[in-house]
Design a protein around this nucleic acid. Structure first.
Lengths: 142, 142
DNA sequence: GAAACATCGTTTGTATGCAAATGAATTTCT
DNA sequence: AGAAATTCATTTGCATACAAACGATGTTTC
Protein backbone atom coordinates (compact mmCIF):
# COMPACT_ATOMS: atom_id res chain seq x y z
CA UNK A 1 0.00 0.00 0.00
CA UNK A 2 1.28 3.46 -0.83
CA UNK A 3 0.91 6.13 1.78
CA UNK A 4 -2.10 8.22 0.70
CA UNK A 5 -0.28 11.28 2.03
CA UNK A 6 2.41 10.76 -0.57
CA UNK A 7 0.41 9.67 -3.58
CA UNK A 8 0.65 13.16 -5.05
CA UNK A 9 4.08 14.69 -4.64
CA UNK A 10 4.24 18.27 -5.84
CA UNK A 11 7.97 18.15 -6.56
CA UNK A 12 7.39 15.32 -9.01
CA UNK A 13 4.80 17.09 -11.14
CA UNK A 14 5.69 18.20 -14.68
CA UNK A 15 3.86 21.48 -14.35
CA UNK A 16 5.55 22.43 -11.13
CA UNK A 17 8.98 21.50 -12.47
CA UNK A 18 8.41 23.23 -15.81
CA UNK A 19 7.47 26.42 -14.02
CA UNK A 20 10.57 26.35 -11.84
CA UNK A 21 12.85 25.41 -14.72
CA UNK A 22 11.58 28.25 -16.88
CA UNK A 23 11.87 30.61 -13.94
CA UNK A 24 15.49 29.65 -13.46
CA UNK A 25 16.24 30.04 -17.15
CA UNK A 26 14.66 33.48 -17.20
CA UNK A 27 16.83 34.59 -14.31
CA UNK A 28 19.97 33.36 -16.07
CA UNK A 29 18.81 35.02 -19.29
CA UNK A 30 18.20 38.41 -17.70
CA UNK A 31 21.48 38.20 -15.80
CA UNK A 32 23.43 37.92 -19.04
CA UNK A 33 21.30 40.04 -21.36
CA UNK A 34 23.13 43.28 -22.05
CA UNK A 35 20.64 44.66 -24.58
CA UNK A 36 17.58 45.11 -22.40
CA UNK A 37 15.53 42.44 -24.15
CA UNK A 38 13.29 39.94 -22.36
CA UNK A 39 13.24 36.33 -23.58
CA UNK A 40 9.94 36.97 -25.32
CA UNK A 41 11.14 40.17 -26.96
CA UNK A 42 14.29 38.44 -28.17
CA UNK A 43 12.35 35.50 -29.59
CA UNK A 44 9.95 37.83 -31.34
CA UNK A 45 12.70 39.91 -32.91
CA UNK A 46 14.66 36.82 -33.90
CA UNK A 47 11.64 35.21 -35.51
CA UNK A 48 10.93 38.37 -37.43
CA UNK A 49 14.44 38.43 -38.86
CA UNK A 50 14.47 34.80 -39.84
CA UNK A 51 11.04 34.98 -41.49
CA UNK A 52 11.10 34.24 -45.18
CA UNK A 53 7.99 36.26 -45.92
CA UNK A 54 6.45 39.49 -44.64
CA UNK A 55 4.56 38.96 -41.41
CA UNK A 56 1.55 40.61 -39.90
CA UNK A 57 1.53 41.29 -36.18
CA UNK A 58 -0.70 38.36 -35.32
CA UNK A 59 1.20 36.01 -37.62
CA UNK A 60 4.46 36.88 -35.92
CA UNK A 61 2.88 36.39 -32.52
CA UNK A 62 1.70 32.93 -33.51
CA UNK A 63 5.22 31.95 -34.58
CA UNK A 64 6.45 32.83 -31.11
CA UNK A 65 3.52 31.25 -29.28
CA UNK A 66 1.83 34.43 -28.10
CA UNK A 67 -1.84 35.36 -28.29
CA UNK A 68 -2.91 38.60 -29.94
CA UNK A 69 -3.17 40.57 -26.71
CA UNK A 70 0.32 39.63 -25.57
CA UNK A 71 1.75 40.25 -29.02
CA UNK A 72 0.34 43.74 -29.02
CA UNK A 73 2.35 44.69 -25.93
CA UNK A 74 5.58 43.08 -27.10
CA UNK A 75 5.38 44.72 -30.52
CA UNK A 76 4.66 48.11 -28.93
CA UNK A 77 7.82 47.85 -26.86
CA UNK A 78 9.93 46.81 -29.84
CA UNK A 79 8.45 49.69 -31.86
CA UNK A 80 9.19 52.16 -29.08
CA UNK A 81 12.85 51.18 -29.27
CA UNK A 82 12.97 51.38 -33.06
CA UNK A 83 13.90 47.72 -33.32
CA UNK A 84 11.07 47.10 -35.76
CA UNK A 85 8.91 49.25 -37.98
CA UNK A 86 5.47 48.94 -39.44
CA UNK A 87 3.90 49.40 -42.84
CA UNK A 88 0.23 49.35 -43.73
CA UNK A 89 -0.67 46.37 -45.86
CA UNK A 90 -2.03 47.54 -49.21
CA UNK A 91 -4.13 44.45 -49.85
CA UNK A 92 -5.66 43.89 -46.43
CA UNK A 93 -6.51 47.09 -44.64
CA UNK A 94 -6.76 45.40 -41.26
CA UNK A 95 -3.14 44.33 -41.43
CA UNK A 96 0.15 45.87 -40.38
CA UNK A 97 3.26 44.33 -41.92
CA UNK A 98 6.25 44.23 -39.60
CA UNK A 99 9.90 44.66 -40.53
CA UNK A 100 13.06 44.52 -38.45
CA UNK A 101 15.15 47.70 -38.57
CA UNK A 102 18.93 47.93 -38.90
CA UNK A 103 19.02 48.85 -35.22
CA UNK A 104 17.08 45.70 -34.46
CA UNK A 105 19.38 43.60 -36.62
CA UNK A 106 22.49 44.95 -34.96
CA UNK A 107 21.02 44.46 -31.52
CA UNK A 108 20.23 40.83 -32.33
CA UNK A 109 23.81 40.23 -33.40
CA UNK A 110 25.13 42.01 -30.34
CA UNK A 111 23.07 40.03 -27.82
CA UNK A 112 23.28 36.61 -29.46
CA UNK A 113 26.31 35.65 -27.32
CA UNK A 114 24.36 36.62 -24.17
CA UNK A 115 21.45 34.47 -25.26
CA UNK A 116 23.61 31.50 -26.17
CA UNK A 117 25.35 31.89 -22.84
CA UNK A 118 22.06 31.77 -20.99
CA UNK A 119 21.04 28.52 -22.72
CA UNK A 120 24.42 27.08 -21.88
CA UNK A 121 24.06 28.18 -18.26
CA UNK A 122 20.59 26.66 -17.99
CA UNK A 123 21.85 23.32 -19.29
CA UNK A 124 25.18 23.48 -17.47
CA UNK A 125 24.49 20.50 -15.21
CA UNK A 126 23.59 18.18 -18.09
CA UNK A 127 25.86 16.20 -20.35
CA UNK A 128 25.66 16.65 -24.08
CA UNK A 129 23.53 13.52 -24.42
CA UNK A 130 21.19 14.61 -21.65
CA UNK A 131 20.75 18.01 -23.27
CA UNK A 132 19.64 16.41 -26.50
CA UNK A 133 17.33 14.11 -24.59
CA UNK A 134 15.74 17.01 -22.73
CA UNK A 135 15.19 19.08 -25.87
CA UNK A 136 13.65 16.14 -27.69
CA UNK A 137 11.36 15.36 -24.78
CA UNK A 138 10.27 18.99 -24.45
CA UNK A 139 9.45 19.12 -28.15
CA UNK A 140 7.21 16.11 -27.71
CA UNK A 141 5.27 17.96 -25.02
CA UNK A 142 4.44 20.85 -27.35
CA UNK B 1 30.93 24.54 -42.60
CA UNK B 2 27.64 25.14 -40.85
CA UNK B 3 25.33 27.69 -42.37
CA UNK B 4 25.72 30.80 -40.22
CA UNK B 5 22.04 31.45 -40.76
CA UNK B 6 21.25 28.26 -38.92
CA UNK B 7 23.83 28.32 -36.15
CA UNK B 8 21.17 29.55 -33.70
CA UNK B 9 17.85 27.79 -34.12
CA UNK B 10 15.13 29.19 -31.90
CA UNK B 11 13.12 25.98 -31.86
CA UNK B 12 16.09 24.16 -30.35
CA UNK B 13 16.60 26.48 -27.38
CA UNK B 14 15.78 25.28 -23.86
CA UNK B 15 14.25 28.56 -22.84
CA UNK B 16 11.94 28.75 -25.82
CA UNK B 17 10.86 25.13 -25.41
CA UNK B 18 10.38 25.46 -21.65
CA UNK B 19 8.15 28.46 -22.17
CA UNK B 20 5.98 26.67 -24.73
CA UNK B 21 5.84 23.47 -22.71
CA UNK B 22 4.72 25.28 -19.59
CA UNK B 23 2.21 27.25 -21.64
CA UNK B 24 0.73 24.05 -22.98
CA UNK B 25 0.59 22.50 -19.54
CA UNK B 26 -1.18 25.56 -18.16
CA UNK B 27 -3.80 25.36 -20.87
CA UNK B 28 -4.43 21.67 -20.12
CA UNK B 29 -4.54 22.46 -16.40
CA UNK B 30 -7.08 25.25 -16.74
CA UNK B 31 -9.18 23.16 -19.12
CA UNK B 32 -9.59 20.46 -16.51
CA UNK B 33 -9.63 22.53 -13.33
CA UNK B 34 -13.16 22.61 -11.96
CA UNK B 35 -12.36 24.52 -8.79
CA UNK B 36 -11.23 27.84 -10.18
CA UNK B 37 -7.63 27.46 -9.02
CA UNK B 38 -4.62 28.44 -11.10
CA UNK B 39 -1.55 26.16 -11.09
CA UNK B 40 0.20 28.54 -8.71
CA UNK B 41 -2.78 28.79 -6.38
CA UNK B 42 -3.12 25.03 -6.31
CA UNK B 43 0.58 24.53 -5.57
CA UNK B 44 0.45 27.10 -2.81
CA UNK B 45 -2.59 25.57 -1.17
CA UNK B 46 -1.20 22.06 -1.51
CA UNK B 47 2.13 23.05 0.00
CA UNK B 48 0.37 24.69 2.90
CA UNK B 49 -1.56 21.54 3.65
CA UNK B 50 1.43 19.24 3.43
CA UNK B 51 3.61 21.51 5.60
CA UNK B 52 4.70 19.89 8.84
CA UNK B 53 5.07 23.19 10.66
CA UNK B 54 3.25 26.53 10.75
CA UNK B 55 4.31 28.73 7.86
CA UNK B 56 4.58 32.46 7.45
CA UNK B 57 3.48 34.01 4.17
CA UNK B 58 7.00 34.44 2.85
CA UNK B 59 8.08 30.98 3.97
CA UNK B 60 5.17 29.42 2.09
CA UNK B 61 6.00 31.47 -0.97
CA UNK B 62 9.57 30.23 -0.93
CA UNK B 63 8.41 26.62 -0.82
CA UNK B 64 6.45 27.23 -4.00
CA UNK B 65 9.16 29.27 -5.72
CA UNK B 66 7.48 32.66 -5.56
CA UNK B 67 8.97 35.95 -4.46
CA UNK B 68 7.30 37.98 -1.74
CA UNK B 69 5.43 40.27 -4.12
CA UNK B 70 3.91 37.40 -6.05
CA UNK B 71 3.09 35.52 -2.87
CA UNK B 72 1.18 38.49 -1.54
CA UNK B 73 -1.22 38.42 -4.48
CA UNK B 74 -1.73 34.66 -4.44
CA UNK B 75 -2.37 34.61 -0.70
CA UNK B 76 -4.85 37.49 -1.00
CA UNK B 77 -6.85 35.54 -3.56
CA UNK B 78 -6.86 32.38 -1.45
CA UNK B 79 -7.92 34.45 1.57
CA UNK B 80 -10.73 36.08 -0.39
CA UNK B 81 -12.11 32.62 -1.12
CA UNK B 82 -11.75 31.45 2.47
CA UNK B 83 -9.41 28.67 1.42
CA UNK B 84 -6.85 29.77 4.00
CA UNK B 85 -6.92 31.91 7.09
CA UNK B 86 -4.39 33.99 8.94
CA UNK B 87 -3.31 34.38 12.51
CA UNK B 88 -0.97 36.94 13.94
CA UNK B 89 2.23 35.34 15.16
CA UNK B 90 2.65 35.94 18.88
CA UNK B 91 6.40 35.68 18.85
CA UNK B 92 7.24 37.69 15.76
CA UNK B 93 4.95 40.63 15.26
CA UNK B 94 5.90 41.04 11.60
CA UNK B 95 4.63 37.60 10.80
CA UNK B 96 1.33 36.19 9.72
CA UNK B 97 0.93 32.47 10.19
CA UNK B 98 -1.12 30.78 7.49
CA UNK B 99 -3.50 27.87 7.88
CA UNK B 100 -5.59 25.99 5.39
CA UNK B 101 -9.33 26.03 6.14
CA UNK B 102 -11.71 23.10 5.89
CA UNK B 103 -13.05 24.66 2.72
CA UNK B 104 -9.52 24.73 1.35
CA UNK B 105 -8.91 21.14 2.34
CA UNK B 106 -12.09 19.93 0.71
CA UNK B 107 -11.35 21.91 -2.42
CA UNK B 108 -7.91 20.34 -2.65
CA UNK B 109 -9.41 16.87 -2.42
CA UNK B 110 -12.06 17.76 -4.96
CA UNK B 111 -9.68 19.09 -7.58
CA UNK B 112 -6.86 16.59 -7.15
CA UNK B 113 -8.23 14.39 -9.94
CA UNK B 114 -8.32 17.41 -12.26
CA UNK B 115 -4.72 18.23 -11.43
CA UNK B 116 -3.52 14.66 -11.85
CA UNK B 117 -5.39 14.54 -15.15
CA UNK B 118 -3.62 17.64 -16.37
CA UNK B 119 -0.20 16.18 -15.59
CA UNK B 120 -1.23 13.02 -17.36
CA UNK B 121 -2.42 15.02 -20.37
CA UNK B 122 0.79 17.01 -20.52
CA UNK B 123 2.87 13.84 -20.54
CA UNK B 124 0.47 11.89 -22.74
CA UNK B 125 2.87 11.56 -25.67
CA UNK B 126 5.68 10.12 -23.56
CA UNK B 127 6.25 6.55 -22.43
CA UNK B 128 6.61 5.80 -18.76
CA UNK B 129 10.40 5.69 -19.09
CA UNK B 130 10.48 8.97 -20.95
CA UNK B 131 8.33 10.63 -18.30
CA UNK B 132 10.77 9.62 -15.60
CA UNK B 133 13.65 10.82 -17.75
CA UNK B 134 12.03 14.19 -18.31
CA UNK B 135 11.23 14.73 -14.65
CA UNK B 136 14.76 13.82 -13.61
CA UNK B 137 16.28 16.12 -16.21
CA UNK B 138 14.02 19.01 -15.19
CA UNK B 139 14.99 18.56 -11.56
CA UNK B 140 18.64 18.85 -12.55
CA UNK B 141 17.91 22.20 -14.17
CA UNK B 142 16.52 23.66 -10.96
C1' DG C 1 -25.94 40.59 -53.29
C1' DA C 2 -26.68 39.68 -48.57
C1' DA C 3 -25.98 36.98 -44.53
C1' DA C 4 -22.81 34.28 -41.93
C1' DC C 5 -18.45 33.56 -40.65
C1' DA C 6 -13.49 34.35 -39.89
C1' DT C 7 -9.56 37.26 -39.12
C1' DC C 8 -7.06 41.65 -37.82
C1' DG C 9 -5.79 44.55 -34.33
C1' DT C 10 -7.34 46.56 -29.90
C1' DT C 11 -9.01 47.08 -25.18
C1' DT C 12 -10.18 45.63 -20.49
C1' DG C 13 -9.72 42.70 -16.66
C1' DT C 14 -7.30 39.25 -14.13
C1' DA C 15 -3.13 36.53 -12.71
C1' DT C 16 1.59 35.40 -12.43
C1' DG C 17 6.34 37.03 -12.15
C1' DC C 18 10.51 40.25 -11.07
C1' DA C 19 12.96 44.58 -9.41
C1' DA C 20 13.29 48.01 -6.23
C1' DA C 21 11.88 50.63 -2.48
C1' DT C 22 9.58 51.08 2.07
C1' DG C 23 8.55 50.77 7.26
C1' DA C 24 8.35 47.72 11.05
C1' DA C 25 10.29 44.23 13.75
C1' DT C 26 13.96 40.97 14.87
C1' DT C 27 18.64 39.32 15.06
C1' DT C 28 23.61 39.78 14.95
C1' DC C 29 27.73 42.04 15.77
C1' DT C 30 30.69 44.71 18.38
C1' DA D 1 23.43 48.65 24.99
C1' DG D 2 23.64 50.38 20.49
C1' DA D 3 24.63 50.00 15.57
C1' DA D 4 24.27 47.21 11.59
C1' DA D 5 22.27 43.79 9.08
C1' DT D 6 18.40 40.85 8.14
C1' DT D 7 13.75 39.50 7.65
C1' DC D 8 8.69 40.33 7.18
C1' DA D 9 5.01 42.05 4.63
C1' DT D 10 3.78 45.67 1.44
C1' DT D 11 3.71 48.74 -2.50
C1' DT D 12 4.74 50.43 -7.16
C1' DG D 13 6.07 49.76 -11.77
C1' DC D 14 6.87 46.88 -15.50
C1' DA D 15 6.43 42.61 -18.57
C1' DT D 16 4.39 38.43 -19.96
C1' DA D 17 0.07 35.63 -20.43
C1' DC D 18 -5.00 34.43 -21.19
C1' DA D 19 -10.11 35.36 -21.63
C1' DA D 20 -13.56 37.93 -23.46
C1' DA D 21 -15.42 41.47 -25.93
C1' DC D 22 -15.15 44.95 -29.69
C1' DG D 23 -15.29 47.33 -34.43
C1' DA D 24 -13.44 46.99 -38.88
C1' DT D 25 -12.39 44.33 -42.64
C1' DG D 26 -12.24 39.96 -45.54
C1' DT D 27 -14.04 35.60 -47.12
C1' DT D 28 -17.63 32.06 -47.79
C1' DT D 29 -22.04 30.52 -48.56
C1' DC D 30 -26.28 30.53 -50.28
Amino acid sequence: MTDPNESYVLDEQVGFLLRLAYQRHMALFMERMTGGLTPTQFSTLYRLREASEPLSQNALGRLVGMDAATTKGVVSRLLARDLIHVEKDGEDRRRYTLFITDTGCHLLDAVLPDVIGSSEATLARLTSTERDQLLQLLKRLI
